[in-house]
Amino acid sequence: MNTQDVYVVVNASPWNYLVPLYIFFKGLSVGALCISAVYTVFRSERFKTLAFPAAITSLLTFIPVPFLLLADLHQPLRFWHLLVNFNPTSVISWGTWLIILYPLCLLWYIARLGLSQGISIPILKGVQESASTSQGTFGLGLRGLSILTLSLALLADLYTAFLLGVVKGKVLWNSALLPGYFLTSAVVTGAALVLIVYLNKKPEEKTVRTLVRIIQGALALEIFFAISQWITLGATSLQGQKALELLWKDPVYLIGDIFLGILVPLVLLNKPSLNKKPVLMIGALLVILGGLLLRFSIVGVGIQAAGLWN
């Protein structure tokens, strides 16, 4: 028995390119901070010279985030409603506070990290002065402060995965894999950007190699998440199969994210050495592009797939 649509209405989604861009930049910031935290939280001396530039990269990439969020509101002048009408069941309500607290903590972390490395930051002079006393950091040392900042960063990144994940009837998003997938992609894009920044300074071979290894590991994890997603979508329901079909038909996902953003960089970043700087740079740029395209395809196809079933 065949059923054919003759006329079906699907009201258009008001979400446009700003939403994936917002998720992407937030991910870049969080990923770069994770690299900085390798030194400040996990005390890897090899990342000592990387910690500060990574933290600054994290801050700079966060700058577009609030603007993208505001631009995405169709009533931007009412943004303050978010601050006075907290809805505990809304993921956006929690996310709003996370993206306020995270950059504040990040500034404090940068000031404290700069202080520990003898770098004075004129615009953060006051913060640095107060951070030099234990009261100024509420008794938190650099490690405590970095754990706090990293926790906020991870939550600020994860909330977008939950924002999508809790939406009923969107089979592509309703997956326990999504938070891990997004976080891995955030780490890999942030690390790739830090690699580009670091290669333009005075890079040390060993540090570059370790950083590239982190990127390769995260890319491998992304492949794992992608394949897990394909299997679960394809095996569980007809809705899942239709969503998977759409995902595979989407060139942004298959050619953009999977091929150009994961597979090609895995080849380019193989056997990293400072003699292959341009190759490493291209690899890192492709990784960042892949992360951006992943956000576009997951958000776009997720909405499109649900439109088949409403």
Binding site: V9, V10, N11, S13, P14, W15, D72, L73, H74, Q75, P76, R78, F79, H81, L82, N85, S90, I92, L163, V167, K168, G169, K170, I303, A306, G307, W309, N310
Partner: peptide
């Protein structure tokens, strides 16, 4: 009160 974030529009499973 609505800020036009569109989350409800995306979240409505019935469009």
């Amino acid at each position: 009160r609505c800020i036009g974030c569109g989350y409800c529009i995306v979240a409505c499973p019935y469009s």
